[in-house]
Design a protein around this nucleic acid. Structure first.
Length: 346
DNA sequence: GTCCAGGATT
DNA sequence: AATCCTGGAC
């Protein structure tokens, strides 16, 4: 044993067995469909949020064949509210690729999994290690935090070279025994989610505390190093909130790509003037401006201006879109702010 | 209210 | 390097 690294893997594996999570609905299975679905949902999304979606999604789409056979609208309807809707579009495409190109079986290596839509390097490694014990490293945001602290890795993760170097470190740290891979991978995720927190980490509860370089130097909060320039722009949008006398709502489908791609949405306009011009003159005086509110995306603040209007259904025949009744629209793929607006209206 | 965390695609 | 969403902490 000439390695300079301490036995991090063994510590993680033993800690996972005694203190890690073991009752989440996507654990205690090696079914790649269930593991894959959970990993996609958990991208950029916290466990608590996913818990509200996972079982319901599985009930509607119990296997990869059912998902592949479903319409994209149906899939987006069950994803509605989870955010980052390209994940749902890629999920659907991936299911179809598995059925059509792999005979309904997920390919059994991380390298092949990574060829599929929506599965990047880390997600591929997670699936392969959980389902088939493959010795392949994950490196999501939580794990980056654990590893950069344990190693006092000071490279700037905004730089490609540092990112590559950390992937190499993560690979070197893997347990030697393939059979330990599921527990090791789960342990790293658990540590990042429950102990090695971004703010106020619980170092006293951490199995890596005795070997953690950042802890040793009392510099835990300096890792990971990432110089990011999040420059958020602002944009105003006007939303036509039309209701018919029968209580139906008027929705249009969003184009792909773009914000809310593929989802149903109230008709969107760049200005109040363009909203007015899109409808018959006799209706313009009945427009009712409602309080604006801000909806935040990663890269822009959307200032949303709802404009209400009650009309007979035929009055908007110049606009693209469809009327949906109370029995229909709740099941559609809707962005959260639009769903909220519709709910408030009754 | 403000700030922040969190992968893959193009 | 830019794009894509929501929820939780403070």
């Amino acid at each position: 044993m000439t390695s300079a690294v301490p036995d991090i893997a063994g510590r993680v594996v033993r800690w996972q067995a005694s203190h890690g999570r073991s009752t989440l609905p996507w654990q205690n299975t090696r079914d790649p469909y269930r593991v894959w679905l959970s990993e996609i949902m958990l991208q950029q999304t916290q466990v608590k949020t996913v818990l509200a979606y996972y079982d319901r999604f599985l009930q509607r789409f119990p296997d990869v064949q059912a998902l592949a056979a479903a319409s994209l609208d149906d899939v987006l309807g069950h994803w509605s509210g989870l955010g980052y809707y390209s994940r749902a579009r890629n999920l659907h495409r991936c299911a179809q690729a598995v059925v059509q190109q792999h005979g309904g079986q997920f390919p059994r290596s991380a390298a092949q999994l990574q060829e599929l839509p929506g599965i990047g390097r880390s997600t591929a490694a997670a699936i392969a290690s959980f389902c088939w014990d493959e010795r392949s490293a994950i490196l999501d945001g939580n794990v980056k935090r654990v590893l950069t602290r344990a190693l006092a890795f000071g490279g700037d993760l905004a730089q490609l070279a540092a990112e590559r170097a950390l992937w190499d470190k993560a690979t070197q740290l893997l347990p030697e025994a393939a059979a330990d891979m599921p527990r090791y991978t789960q342990g790293l995720m658990d540590l990042g989610a429950t102990v090695c927190l971004s703010r106020q980490p619980s170092c006293l509860l951490c199995p890596l505390e005795p070997v953690c370089e950042a802890r040793k130097r009392q510099e835990v909060d300096r890792y990971p190093v990432k110089t990011r320039k999040l420059k958020r722009t602002a944009q105003s949008l006007w939303l036509l909130r039309a209701r018919s006398a029968e209580g139906e709502v008027f929705l249009e489908k969003r184009p792909t790509p773009g914000v809310w791609a593929g989802l149903y949405c109230l008709p969107v306009f760049d200005s109040r003037e363009s909203l007015e011009q899109a409808m018959p003159a006799r209706l313009r005086e009945r427009l009712d401006d409602e309080p604006a509110f801000v909806h935040v995306l990663t890269h822009k603040d959307l200032h949303l201006h709802p404009v209400a209007l009650t009309v007979e259904a035929a009055a908007l025949k110049k606009l693209q879109g469809t009327w949906f009744g109370r029995a229909e629209w709740p099941a559609l793929g809707l962005p959260t702010p639009v769903r909220r607006l519709l709910s408030e209206a009754g």
